[in-house]
Design a protein around this nucleic acid. Structure first.
Length: 280
RNA sequence: CCUGGCGGGACUUU
């Protein structure tokens, strides 16, 4: 069984669903069984390749052969549904797991809340945030990031900021994902100085910005027409030892295509050449 | 009593 488990694990990483089914079938023929794991692996493969129907089929299949879905199974399926924006079905699965005696944990709640935020149901998402607390399930920094990102993407940065205060009151330490999401909210609403302040704040709290954080600010400054500030952030990024990524390059290329000022073109061209990265 | 190293979150193009 251990050999099969290891094998199926590797096949899962390789997204080889046919291989997993093949060895699952072979195990069954040899009277071996190791529970829900292979099915979870299959559902995660189908999540990664965007085959929701196959994930649902796998879920039905495991139940049909008498294998109980676990919290990992339900959460993986929820993740598939959220990615496919099938939010009603996700809620249905969320209820089904409870009926089956499987209590959602922080991760399961986070996935559902993320899905609700992605389709713009922000207030409804917040009811689940309250619901989970009532059930003794503590929202963590990931849960809050999904909600804050949701409000930011809806342009409600003020609301996001209010949630940020709750986080600190609940004793949660904001991490780089959370700061980046909030910085993105300020950038997208044109509040570049607020965004920059947050960069300083996170640095002062020894939460080091990563490439995504810098890219977010660089893009914000470029779109705000503040090319010099964008380049200052880029230089800071390099100075702090964060390698620009292909996204950094794409931001500069996009900006380059849209500007009309010749001097700025020259500046950007120089910066684009400095980025040692294969274009995608 | 314990037990899952990728079950969940942030950047560019619309």
């Amino acid at each position: 069984v251990a050999s099969y488990a290891a094998l199926i694990d590797v096949l899962g990483q390789a997204k080889d669903d046919k291989g997993v089914w093949y060895f699952l079938d072979q195990m069954k023929n040899r009277g071996l069984w190791y529970g829900d794991k292979p099915f979870n692996i299959l559902i995660r493969i189908y999540d990664r390749v965007g085959k929701l129907q196959e994930a649902e089929r796998t879920f039905e299949h495991m139940k049909a052969v008498g294998c109980r879905p676990t919290i990992y199974t339900y959460t993986s399926l929820l993740q598939c549904l959220v990615k496919a924006q099938c939010i009603e079905r996700a809620e249905q699965v969320f209820h089904e797991m409870q009926r089956a005696g499987c209590s959602p944990d922080t991760v399961a709640y986070s996935v559902l809340i993320c899905g609700l935020c992605k389709v713009g149901k922000l207030e409804y998402a917040r009811t689940f945030l309250e619901d989970m607390v009532a059930k003794g399930c503590t929202p963590d920094v990931v849960t809050y990031t999904t909600v804050i990102d949701g409000f930011c993407k809806a342009g409600k940065v003020d609301e996001a900021q209010r949630l940020m205060a709750d986080i600190v009151n609940n004793g949660i330490t904001p991490d780089v994902h959370l700061y980046s999401a909030l910085i993105n909210g300020f950038c997208k609403t044109g509040c570049m100085d607020e965004a920059n302040k947050l960069l300083d704040e996170m640095t002062s709290k020894s939460c080091e910005p990563n490439a995504i954080t810098y890219n977010t600010l660089i893009d914000g400054f470029c779109k705000a027409g503040r090319l010099n500030d964008a380049i200052m952030v880029l230089d800071l990024m390099v100075q702090k030892g964060r390698r620009p990524t292909v996204v950094t390059l794409n931001i500069l290329v996009d900006t380059f295509c849209k500007i009309k000022n010749v001097d700025e073109c020259v500046t950007i061209k120089k910066k684009m050449r400095e980025i040692d990265c294969v274009p995608d």
